[in-house]
């Protein structure tokens, strides 16, 4: 068996183990699902009256793609916290004494978090539909948007996996991630139009991958209201630009995390 095949089969065994926790501690799932729903409702009704996006589209319709992007990026925190928790527990010694793939724990964790993201996207979409969001493009495009969101989330998971292996306890992951994830998601077009930023901040917004995944989703869901994308290559080609980020993040953080895992587990 090649090492990649073994990483995948062992990773799937570990992912199944992670998912059993949903069955045993359903409370975890409740919070995974409630917080995005809360975000949809909060933003839609708190900012909905104050912000009016350009183009023929209401704020709720503008907002949903942004909330999707924000939630899946936040979801990566689970990956980091989950790994940090694994590293503290006795089970990691069992894994390390088995002739299994050394990356299976990482592959398993990032894979099981895709399932969390699928569930939270599903619940957010349903909440969105209830408050007035509509998919105006084709079903195929909408599916593509969801896939792109999941793929982007998967790559961010690997960043947080690395963070989770660096820090001493799961709590630190939560705090550390806020410092990075809040600026990334708020200094973007997720909640306010890119046009409302100036200068350096505007440049950051235009090239922030959270903006481009949001832009890509809006276009694929048909939620732009005919408003043309901002004049930047990244925003003009949001799908390609986002995919480039996904590849870049994975190329950097998969090896980094694997190396950190090996280092952390041979202390």
């Amino acid at each position: 068996m090649s090492s990649t095949t073994q990483a995948l089969t062992d990773g799937w065994v570990v992912a199944q183990r992670n998912l059993v926790k949903i069955k045993r501690v359903p409370e975890v799932l409740v919070f995974v699902l409630i917080s995005p729903i809360m975000f949809v409702l909060l933003f839609a009704y708190v900012f909905g009256g104050a912000i009016s996006p350009p183009g023929a589209v209401g704020y709720k319709e503008f907002l949903i793609a942004g909330i999707f992007a924000q939630t899946v990026v936040f979801g990566a925190t689970f990956t980091g916290a989950g790994l940090a928790e694994d590293m503290q527990k006795g089970i990691i010694d069992r894994f390390r004494s088995l002739p299994m793939s050394r990356t299976a724990v990482l592959v398993g964790r990032t894979t099981s978090d895709v399932v969390y993201n699928v569930l939270s996207l599903l619940f957010m979409a349903l909440t969105g539909l209830v408050v007035g969001w509509r998919i105006r493009g084709s079903a195929g495009d909408a599916l593509l948007a969801f896939l792109l969101l999941l793929l982007f989330a998967y790559s961010v998971s690997w960043i947080m996996a690395w963070v989770g292996l660096l820090v001493p306890s799961p709590d630190v992951v939560n705090n550390a991630s806020f410092v990075v994830i809040f600026p990334l998601t708020f200094v973007s077009n997720a909640f306010v139009p890119a046009e409302s930023f100036d200068g350096v901040l505007r440049t950051f917004v235009l090239y922030n991958p959270v903006s481009t995944i949001t832009q890509a989703s809006r276009e694929l869901f048909g939620n732009t209201g005919g408003q043309p994308a901002p004049d930047a290559w990244s925003m003009q080609h949001p799908v390609v630009y986002t995919l480039a980020w996904v590849v870049l993040i994975l190329a950097v953080f998969v090896p980094l995390s694997v190396r950190q895992f090996k280092a952390a587990s041979s202390r």
């Binding site: 183990r17 059993v20 926790k21 045993r24 501690v25 527990k89 006795g90 089970i91 990691i92 010694d93 069992r94 004494s97």
Partner: peptide
Amino acid sequence: YAAVDEYL
């Protein structure tokens, strides 16, 4: 320290 997963 027993290396078992407590949720399993």
